[in-house]
Structures are given as structure tokens and as C-alpha cells.
Design a protein around this nucleic acid. Sequence first.
RNA 1: GAGCCAUUAGCUCAGCCGGUAGAGCACCGGACUUUUAAUCCGGGUGUCCCGGGUUCGAGUCCCGGAUGGCUCACCA
Length: 491
Amino acid sequence: MHVALDANELVQQRQNKLQLLRERGLNPYPNHYQPTHQVVDILGNFPALEGQEVSVAGRMMARREHGKAAFADLYDRSGRIQLYFRQDFLGEEAFKTWLDLVDIGDILGVAGLVFKTRRGEISLEVRQWEILTKSLRPLPEKWHGLKDVELRYRQRYLDLIVNPQVREVFVRRSQIIKGIRAFLDERGFLEVETPSMQPEAGGAAARPFITYHNALQMHFYLRIALELHLKRLLVGGLERVYELGRVFRNEGISTRHNPEFTMLECYQAYADYEDMMRLTEELISRVAEEVLGTTRIAYQGEEINLTPPWPRLTMQEAIRRYAGVDFAAIDVDAEAQEVGRRLGIELTGTEMRGEVMNKVFSEFVEQHLVQPTFILDYPLEISPLAKRKEDDSRLVYRFEAFIACRELANAFSELNDPVDQRERFVAQAEKFARGDAEAQKVDEDFLVALEYGMPPAGGLGIGVDRLVMLLTDSPSIRDVILFPTLRPRED
RNA sequence: GAGCCAUUAGCUCAGCCGGUAGAGCACCGGACUUUUAAUCCGGGUGUCCCGGGUUCGAGUCCCGGAUGGCUCACCA
């Protein structure tokens, strides 16, 4: 891939042209160019601009030669405009130089008169042109675009140049994130930033990345969640906070998992998980409405209706419905394992009741949750940071939102009892000691914060990349991350 | 981490049963002053992913490796 610059003839030809430009006194990399218009301004204001002189800057992407005249396509960030070059308008020398020394892919500034061709296309009759950047490598083909997915990810700039749909996805991603901010800001949430490098990685069940700080002579973990620091801010009285932040999980890569990804977490004092359900469905439907103009979307051929309210189903009901077993009647771990095995689930024999429940859920229920659905009341064993239910101490006030069979949001009434929290951490630490690399450890610093008193609160986490996938109809998370994690290529 | 698939010109791809490398676009030379996948004439530009092996002969068959994709595992 890292072909030496002189490796092939096409590059050599361009380098020769670069040299010739310099010899003719043209700077192939000038410092400055000030276009008067963007392409979209010209296309959108043709009646007012017809016959006027304007200038635009952008990348030349196609050329159609006709002897002593030629057409070219110029793209800027707003769109494409056709350029018309004529020898008798430019003079023989300027015309020939453009013809001989400018290539597809070069970045140009052009000034000329706005007109419409015989075929009705708004175009620019070029009176002056200058090269703004000489391109030394040939671009991928215009008709088929760049298809090689490996090149698309490794050289995303090429993907963006030649595949216009790709740009659309990332424009939309930006709009989605802006929409999330606007929604939360309106409701009085304060956007904050918390550390990415932490002495312990907590707040989720995941293996962390480790890094090393030289001056402090110690290891840090890259965060796997935003949770524990945001809750410290509730203790501090901020009451409504959110962070849109990158988190890092040292796990496998798939169409739904990138090692670094973007999470939204928000926390609201004096709210519970019911409030967070309403917040979740309002947030997602509102963002869809803003970005797509509708809450009825298509994802990979499925019609999905995001209009609130979304149906709610407890995890036990869902399992009863789709797997035909009733965990409410099961109390001991061994009995739960027996039920799991009968359903064909592989178990090691160390699973607790709630862990079996979760496996059964994943295996039998998730595949049915195409339309937005809240699954509520999760087992306590797999929810060490959520508040215990008052009417069933085996469960917690927690829900996940599923859309298109995928977990999109995870939320709960936050556990603020420091004694209970310590016990949960200890249980997690025991699992870690038994070899569960994803279990959490006791976060003493966080416990001290809770001991000062955290108000009752609801918290919500949303996988932003997965939301963007949903709203851009993208099948892979790599389609919504500009530079997804890849193994570096050895040469 | 496992299974399957892919890797051939700058890009998109073909290449049969093993016989010495092909197309379109791009590019180079020529013609052409309103074309738009411009057109017409001429030109193939290559580490067939890498390394071994089998064979008279390997893009093709076998083994190993690299990278990527999909599925699975992992991801409460």
C-alpha cells in the first residue's frame, strides 16, 4: 500500500507536471485563495448570478476535452459545478497549461462568468484559473468508486472523495450528535468532561486497555464507561450532567463493536428509571425527527417505528413469552442452570440465577426485538450499580432499550446506598478473583463519594455509534466511524 | 480466538481442465470550441498479497504466512 512515490508511471507523470508548473512560475502549493462563492450558492442563485463573475475553489474530478475548449467538474464541500474552459477566453498559453499540466484530482481556484449550457446545466465560463494544490497520485475511478473496504477504511479520505454517500453518513452523524446535545441542553443538563485515564476502569463489565504514565511511574486504564465519575458529580450537586465521550474496551472487533466507541451517558437527580425511559424514547424519536424528518425509519429492510411510547416488557415476561420458562418461580442457581441447560444453553456450572436469565434472554428474546422495546427489571447479579427493586430484591430498577434486535440504551435507577454498593463491589471483586476479567473492582474513592450522599437519580447510557448506524441504515459500525480500528499493515 | 471467503494494472473486475496476462475507467500520443460515464484513432502501463512445494511449466494445484470481509466466540 505504501508504494514509494516514484513507484509507478502515473505518479511519475504527475511529478513531471509539478516540475513544469514550477518552471512556468506557477506555485503548485500557494498559501491562499479566497473564493467568492460556494458551488451551492451559484447553483441556488442562478437568476441573480447569471453573467456575473464569481470564483470557487475545489477539486477537479472529471474533464471532457473538445480541442480548443473543454469541460471539467469541480467539487467543493457543497457540491459539483461544471467548468467551461475556452482557449479564446483564456488565451492560448493559459488554456494549454491547464490542459497539459492539470490532472484530475488537482485542487483549483477558478474565476469566471456564470452561464447555462445548451443542455441547461449551470456552469462557469472560466476566465482565470490557478492551481491551489497539485495532486501526485491518481484517484480511484469515478464510475465504480472505491469499493475495496480495506482501502476505504485505511484511506478514508479517498472514500470521502469518490463515494458521496459516505460523506452523507458523517454529516448525519454530526447532526445526530448536535441533536443529542440540543435535547439535553434544553432540559437543563450540563455537559461535562471526565478523565479517560483512570487508576481503575469501572462502570461496566469489560476488559480495559492499559497505558503507562512515565512521570507518575504508574499504569492507568483507559475508561470503559463514564458512569462513576458522572455520579461523583451528582454528589457534587450538579444534578443533571451528561458526557458524550470516547470509551475503550479491549475486546473483539465485529460489525457492532469497535475497540473505541462513543457513549452518551446522562444522569438526572430526583429521577428514576421510569423517567429515563421517557427521556430515552423522546431523545431518540426527537433526533430521528430532526435528522431524518420522520420517526418511521427503515433499517436494513425493516420498517422501524420510533414514535413514542415504546412498549415495555419485563425481562421475566419476555423470557416467558419467547423461551417458555418462568424465572420468577426459580430461586436457586442450580435450578436456573438446569432450566438453561434444558433450553440448550451451554453453561459452566458456576453461573448465578441472574446470569443464566441473561443468557436465556440473549439466546431467545433479543432476535424478536425489532421494534423499539424497553426490557425492564434486570437481575441484580449482572447489575452491580443499579438500585434494588423494593418488591423483589433479586431484581434491580434497570432497563435496556432494544431496536433492530440490538441493545441501544442501558439505564437504571442509580444505586446510592453506599453499604449496598460496597457489597456489590465486593461480589464483583470476588468474581474477578475467580478469573472473570470483566468483573469490576472495589472503587473506594467512589464509595467515599457515595458516603457523602448521592441524590436518588436515574442514569442513561446510549451507544452513539449504534444510534448512528440505525439512523443512517448502516450495517456495520465501521461505516459510521471515520477511522475504525484496523491492524496496521506491514510492508 | 475458530470456520468460510477474498486478495490479478492507479480503480472496478474477468482469467475455463496448469501452457507464459485481459477488459472498462484512469493514464499517454493524436483529432475535435456547449460536452457531461463526451466522442473518434492509436498505445497495456503488472512483485497476479508474501514465502515455500509439486510440475517440463503455477495467477491457476498443495502447504505456511499476511491483511481484509462475513459468521461464530467475546461484548452483563
